[in-house]
Design a binder for these strands. Structure first.
Lengths: 196, 196
DNA sequence: ACACAAGTAGACAGATCGGTATACATCCAC
DNA sequence: GTGGATGTATACCGATCTGTCTACTTGTGT
């Protein structure tokens, strides 16, 4: 094992461990000692890679943003372009909620919604990272909405975002395994009304 | 000041103070000492009324559930029955998000969604209190949806819940003041498709 | 060969956590 | 008028928090 790969490994171990714990138990509920114990890494090593817990939090948000969008993008591109792609979003959500896709397991709600719940002030640096993530996902939907209805792609992607967020909350809070399918039904009718 | 009224006052002061702090900063981020300092009450008094922080959390959830549903019910009943009542929900949300209604100010997202973000396990006792709240709100919508389309009131109220949750998340995470109006537009089209 | 970057274990600091204990004041009901 | 419920203030408990520190090991590049 080379030094360089070890360096990256430890850093990534810390981020992925921190993410898993933060995601499951919430950020404030998880201490630095718990992170290093689970990651199997010395405290000194954590503070070598990150200035503070805040920096580690920021890194987990970047990590999850990348992971989530990569996953969703891949799921969407397996579907036919346009309407098919947009409906594929809800099939992807369905697999996420019901933990049928290893790439995105487990499901404990949206990490970014959850983080905003702990940092409610929109000026907070972590809250703003969450806004950035949501903006990037919206842009992804926009690109596909543009194929369906170029003129009204902004509206359409916005409304699909509402259905997506509603589904995530319903799936998590109510532990409703059907949430994505209900949202998909709504999306189908929405897409009909946008069909050119 | 009588003993009885004092008794209730202190207990209620603690609950309403705890709610405000939990709502703004998150539950895990707020300590018992902060609650008693802001409430202006001795620690002994808190532990006289509540066995533990957990018990105080449970009480704030009951308090907010009551407050929120009373508020929403009142807002809905000012509108004409049926479709008007259901659309009034989104006008109410609009006032909530933009802090135009003193009875429900301030806005930091949905306390119950936020609480589920800190207690992600659906088996957790606080998470289940949140489910109960959401179920009761859904029942409120169901009663009015029943006036619009008795046969499909279940579906309709379910879909309106999705729009409501989507709007709350969008308003909070993205600090989007328009969220309720977007959802209202979607609800209007939804109601058209359910019109008998 | 040696300097340096990255790692280890673990003690420690100072603050804060939830919760308990002590000692005393107030007020109402019986 | 006394007992019990409710309140005050404050000290204290053991645990845990984030973050620092010492002392040592390991592997790489020059």
């Amino acid at each position: 094992m080379s030094q360089a790969s070890n360096r990256l490994e430890k850093r990534d171990q810390l981020i992925s461990t921190a993410f898993s714990l933060f995601y499951r138990y919430g950020i404030h509920a998880v201490g630095i000692n718990q992170v290093i114990d689970v990651a199997g890494v010395a405290k000194r090593t954590l503070y070598h890679h990150f200035d503070s817990k805040e920096a580690l939090i920021a890194a987990t948000l970047v990590y999850r943003d990348q992971q989530f969008r990569t996953w969703l993008e891949a799921r969407i591109e397996q579907a036919p372009p346009g309407e098919g792609a947009l409906l594929a979003v809800f099939d992807a959500l369905d697999d996420w909620f019901n933990e049928r896709d290893e790439a995105i397991m487990p499901f404990h709600g949206c990490f970014f919604i959850n983080t905003c719940a702990e940092y409610t002030d929109p000026q907070n640096v972590h809250h703003q990272q969450c806004q950035t993530h949501k903006r990037l996902v919206r842009e992804m939907l926009f690109r596909h909405a543009y194929q369906v209805n170029a003129e009204r792609a902004d509206e359409l992607s916005q409304e699909l975002v509402f259905l997506k967020e509603g589904a995530i909350v319903q799936a998590h809070v109510m532990a409703d395994p059907q949430a994505a399918l209900v949202a998909k039904g709504m999306a189908k009718r929405l897409l009909q009304s946008y069909a050119t």
